[in-house]
Design a protein around this nucleic acid. Structure first.
Lengths: 180, 180
DNA sequence: TTGAGCGTAAAGTATATACTGTACATACAT
DNA sequence: ATGTATGTACAGTATATACTTTACGCTCAA
């Protein structure tokens, strides 16, 4: 027979779970899978650092999944490893500074994409310019000029995007829009 | 035997393809799949609006895939349908205003995520507060207070995030960081 | 009214992704 | 030194996603 307090505890766990499920679902935008999101949420509400076995128990999933999940969350800077002397098992806790950790995730992902795109655009531009020198057919020249315009437009866009990313990277965004 | 001009044309197509492949790969950040990204890229460089059959031919994929792909790109506002009288087939062209289309994609996705999270957080907060009233066990009370702190922190974060999204939604971002 | 051309729904298939179980290498305690 | 506990690589399996094929309903021309 469960006591009154146990009943509250159960409903509390249920409420937490519901919240965790929701944020986990929406973490796809940060490039975090659903289950890794639940993993993060579980650690967020844990009052102590957790071991892989703790997580495995809490989520009812294999320890191996926890291991790979933690690695992904660490890479994203959303989780950090902590040490306690006398404890053999690895201990992890969530990085609770969402402003820092989530903007860094955002910056890393978008910076990489922008860099790739810029490189590809510059390479295409060089090629197009060479072709333009060689071309004689008026129609081909016309096509090439239009294509060059597109590439130049893209390059400008990426420059702008870089500026946006920089605002987040440097922390200027927090001056523009102060955290509460 | 291919002429000089044809040879240029071939190399041009190759260069375009390489560029398209790169941006398509990085379009995952916008929630656009790789092949839909290629579809967009193909239309971007097309000098005329394209039919589903054109696309199917260009990408070497089934017309059905083009149909569903186009629908996704339309929903994202990255592609628009155009009419030409006397033409039976549906015609589509890329929306070339990247500042508009891509920021709107960004806003929609993040706004939805933020809304969901906020709803879940508010629901959790209400629950936690009820539990706090009912709780008597000091340890449980302590846990609840910490949990409430987390939820309040989350709510503040979502408010901040909403502000960030609003900057993009309203176009204020273009005053802060002007397009080139 | 009929027939051909068009877009898409539905079901089936292939490919990619996420997850698990086992087995191993490493580190620590005795 | 030896045994035990711990994290992870690897291979296999299940699940989800992307893609194709077939069939159908709708629209417009004749």
């Amino acid at each position: 027979m469960e006591t009154e307090q146990q009943h509250i505890q159960n409903r509390l766990d249920e409420a937490k779970n519901q919240f965790i499920s929701t944020i986990a679902q929406n973490m796809g935008l940060y490039g975090v899978s659903d289950t890794n999101g639940r993993l993060y949420g579980t650690m967020l509400f844990a009052d102590r650092p957790m071991t892989l076995d703790d997580m495995s128990e809490a989520l009812g999933m294999s320890k191996m999944s926890m291991s790979t999940g933690i690695r992904a969350l660490m890479d994203a800077g959303m989780v950090e490893r902590v040490w306690e002397k006398g404890v053999r098992k690895d201990l992890y806790q969530s990085n609770d500074d969402w402003y820092q950790s989530f903007t860094s995730v955002f910056v890393n992902r978008w910076r990489e994409a922008s860099d790739n795109n810029q490189k590809a655009a510059r390479r295409a531009k060089e090629d197009f310019e060479v072709f333009l020198e060689e071309a004689e057919d008026p129609y081909l020249i016309d096509v090439l000029q239009h294509d060059l315009e597109k590439i130049n437009y893209a390059l400008n866009y990426y420059e702008w995007l870089d500026e946006v990313i920089r605002i987040f990277e440097s922390g200027e965004i927090f001056a523009m829009i102060p955290p509460k």
